[in-house]
Structure formats: C-alpha cells, structure tokens
C-alpha cells in the first residue's frame, strides 16, 4: 500500500515556503482560507492515490 512521504522531499524547502507565504500576501483571512482550499484540492488531485490521500489526512491531524 502506498503511504504518504513524511521525510524531506522538496529540494529548496525555504524557497517553497517563501513562495507559499507570498501567495497569501495581501489576502484577507477569507481569501486566504479560500486560496488554501483550492490549493489543497489541486495538490490532492495531483497525488490522486486514494491511500496516500487518506494517509496524509490522518498524518495532518497530529499536532505535536
């Protein structure tokens, strides 16, 4: 069964993080929330694998 990758997988992580925050720059809370939702849906569709998605949904529940 496929599982979600939880080890470092993005080359240039700092770059990515900055780009993500920049996308939210200047957005109201409402627009940011809606942007996040669209982004999640796009990424989820890209992954496609149902098992990985379930795994990610569970993994994200952990807060610390």
């Amino acid at each position: 069964m496929s599982t979600v990758t939880l080890t470092p997988n993005i080359a240039g992580g700092d770059d990515f993080y900055e780009e993500l925050l920049n996308a939210h720059e200047g957005l109201s809370k409402e627009d940011s929330d809606s942007y996040n939702a669209r982004l999640i849906l796009i990424l989820a569709n890209h992954i496609g694998d149902r098992a990985v998605l379930s795994d990610a949904i569970t993994a994200a529940k952990r807060k610390g």
């Binding site: 809606s34 849906l41 796009i42």
Partner: peptide, 19 residues
C-alpha cells in the same frame, strides 16, 4: 470550512476539468 471547500470546488471547476 465545508462552505469554503464547496466554493473552492466550484471556483476551480470553471477553469480546471479535474474539479
């Protein structure tokens, strides 16, 4: 939140077939 996701689906579906 459910409303935000619902509208996100609708907004995306106008431009992207996947939604």
């Amino acid at each position: 939140t459910s409303h935000i996701f619902r509208n996100a689906v609708l907004e995306l579906s106008e431009h992207y077939e996947f939604a």
